[in-house]
């Protein structure tokens, strides 16, 4: 598989996430689209880690080059889990205050 195919896949997933953030007004869907973008980036990191590992394996059979990217993905997942818990708490609090999850209600900070 050429690396370009993975790049195109991740770009498409990321763009779908962007379109979702721009077109939906439900705060939960917007949040889910952000998760989608995070996953697209994770997939690209793993693909490039695989490329570098394959290149290193040609010289050294037990090479561990590329393992940092996978741990990076692991830490991104950790941070995403923490982010989701706080973000959903914020959405629940917003729903309790204005009885809606419409993000257009949040523009009252403007004035």
């Amino acid at each position: 598989m050429p690396i370009q195919y993975y790049i195109y896949l991740c770009l498409a997933l990321f763009s779908i996430g962007i379109v979702g953030v721009l077109t939906r007004r439900n705060a939960i869907i917007v949040f889910m689209c952000i998760e989608l973008m995070l996953n697209a980036v994770n997939l690209l990191l793993v693909a490039f880690s695989k490329v570098h590992n394959t290149a290193a394996l040609a010289g050294d059979k037990t090479s561990m080059i590329g393992i940092e990217a996978q741990l990076f993905v692991f830490f991104i997942m950790v941070v995403a889990a923490a982010e989701v818990s706080v973000g959903l708490a914020i959405i629940v609090m917003m729903y309790r205050n204005v009885h809606s999850v419409d993000i257009n209600f949040l523009n009252r900070l403007k004035n």
Partner: peptide
């Protein structure tokens, strides 16, 4: 640059755990 599938052992939990 091609992604060759089915090779490498960096994804195994043993190696990741050692690095982690």
């Amino acid at each position: 640059i091609a992604v060759t599938m089915g090779t490498g052992e960096i994804g195994l939990i043993k190696n990741l755990g050692k690095a982690l």
